Structures are given as structure tokens and as C-alpha cells.
Simulated scan of single mutants.
Amino acid sequence: MTITLRVDATSSASALFLRPWNADDVEPLVEVYRDPTLRRWTSLPVESTEDAVRWLDVQKRGWETGARLSFAVHEDQSDTGESRLAGNMALKRADPHSGSAEVGYWTAPHARGRGVAPRALEALTVWAFDTFAVEGLERLELLHQADNHASCRVAEKARYQFHQVLPAQPPSFPRDGHVHIRQAGTRV
């Protein structure tokens, strides 16, 4: 089964599509991970083709187990008819019967500040609630480090309400974090 989520173009932004990661994403993934800002906020480094293959294997296993449903976000390039990797969106479901799950994301440098992350997050959110409603999914949590102000703005634009500060827990979580929550039924 192939899942593709589509986000229409706007007057100021290209159309997006989200699809599960695949082997064609190795080179674009290595390129995007050269960005020091991305590397600052992510925990799985991708420095080589081999790292990218391992990273993609993690994403594939996530789909197989249902624990991590990760999508490559692509931005249509209307002038060429091709697409460009713009980011990652993931739905993390440690316990599919708990009623809640976590979302996570990152964006490529060229995609930042142009509404790509909030639009893609909205598509993932709607899909997750629609797809997993029968399993009782009612709440999505978005976690980020407190000093990641861009992630805070994305959460707010996608109507994830600030819920609480999480105290740092070194070494895995060296800084305080924020939890944002979106309940099922929160729509545009």
C-alpha cells in the first residue's frame, strides 16, 4: 500500500506531498543533513551514504512495526515539474492503544520560513486522526527543546497548544523542553 498525503499550493507556497521514505532519498538526505541547524536538533546523524541507508532502514522498520510512521516531505518545483526534499514528518506510536501519539519533524534549510513545516504537520495531523480514530487516537503531542523557537512557532501555526515545560533529563535531554498538544477534532 502506498500512502501519499498532498497539500495544495497556495498563492505564496508550492504544493507539497508526503510519502514514506525510500531508497531514492539517500542522496537528498545526505545533502540536507549537511545543515548545522538540522544537526543541532536531531539525534540520528547522517554524514554519509551508509548513514543515510541506516537511517532509512530505521524508517522502514518503523512502518513495518507501526511504531514510527515517517514521511519524506517533498515540495513540487512547478518550473521543472520535479520535486525537492523539504523535510520529514513522523508519527510515533509507542503504544497504538494508548489514545495518544507523538509527532516530530524537521525541515531542510531551503524550506524554512515558508510555511512548509506547519502545512505538512497539518496534513500529517489530519491523516493520523482520520486513520487511527478507530484505534482510539484522540491526542497528539509535539515535543521540542525549549530553546527551539522555530519549532514552537510551527506548533502554534498547526494549532498545537502549549501544555507544559518538561525539565531537562541529561544526558539524553540536556535542556528543558516544551510539550504542545492537539486534540482530535481541532480543525481549520
Rank of each mutant, 00 (worst) to 15 (best):
M1A: 10
A9F: 10
T10E: 01
S12N: 13
S14F: 01
F17M: 07
P20V: 12
W21I: 12
W21Y: 13
N22P: 02
D25E: 05
V30D: 09
E31K: 13
V32P: 02
V32F: 01
Y33P: 00
Y33F: 15
D35L: 12
D35I: 09
P36H: 11
P36K: 13
T37Y: 08
T37F: 10
L38A: 04
R39K: 09
W41A: 05
S48D: 02
S48P: 00
L56K: 04
V58S: 03
R61D: 10
G62F: 05
G62C: 02
W63P: 01
T65D: 09
T65E: 11
G66K: 08
A67F: 06
R68G: 02
L69C: 11
L69R: 14
S70H: 11
F71V: 05
E75P: 01
D79K: 11
D79G: 05
E82C: 01
S83M: 08
S83P: 03
S83D: 14
R84V: 12
L85Y: 08
A86M: 13
G87L: 08
N88K: 02
A90R: 01
L91R: 04
L91W: 05
A94L: 14
H97V: 07
H97G: 07
S98G: 04
S98Y: 04
A101M: 09
E102C: 10
Y105N: 07
W106R: 03
A108T: 03
A111G: 03
R112Y: 00
V116Q: 01
V116N: 06
A120N: 08
L121P: 00
A123W: 05
L124Q: 07
V126H: 05
V126C: 04
V126T: 14
F129R: 06
D130L: 08
T131V: 03
E135L: 13
G136N: 08
G136T: 13
E138N: 15
E141V: 04
E141G: 01
L142S: 00
L143E: 11
H144R: 03
Q145W: 12
Q145H: 11
Q145G: 04
H149V: 15
A150K: 05
S151W: 06
S151K: 09
C152G: 15
R153Y: 06
V154F: 06
A158L: 11
Y160M: 08
F162Y: 15
H163Y: 00
Q164L: 09
Q164W: 02
V165L: 08
V165Q: 03
L166Y: 01
L166V: 13
A168Y: 04
P171L: 09
P171Q: 08
S172T: 07
S172C: 04
P174F: 08
P174A: 06
D176C: 10
G177Q: 05
H180W: 11
H180N: 14
H180I: 06
I181H: 08
Q183A: 14
T186G: 01
T186A: 11
R187Y: 11
R187G: 07
R187N: 10
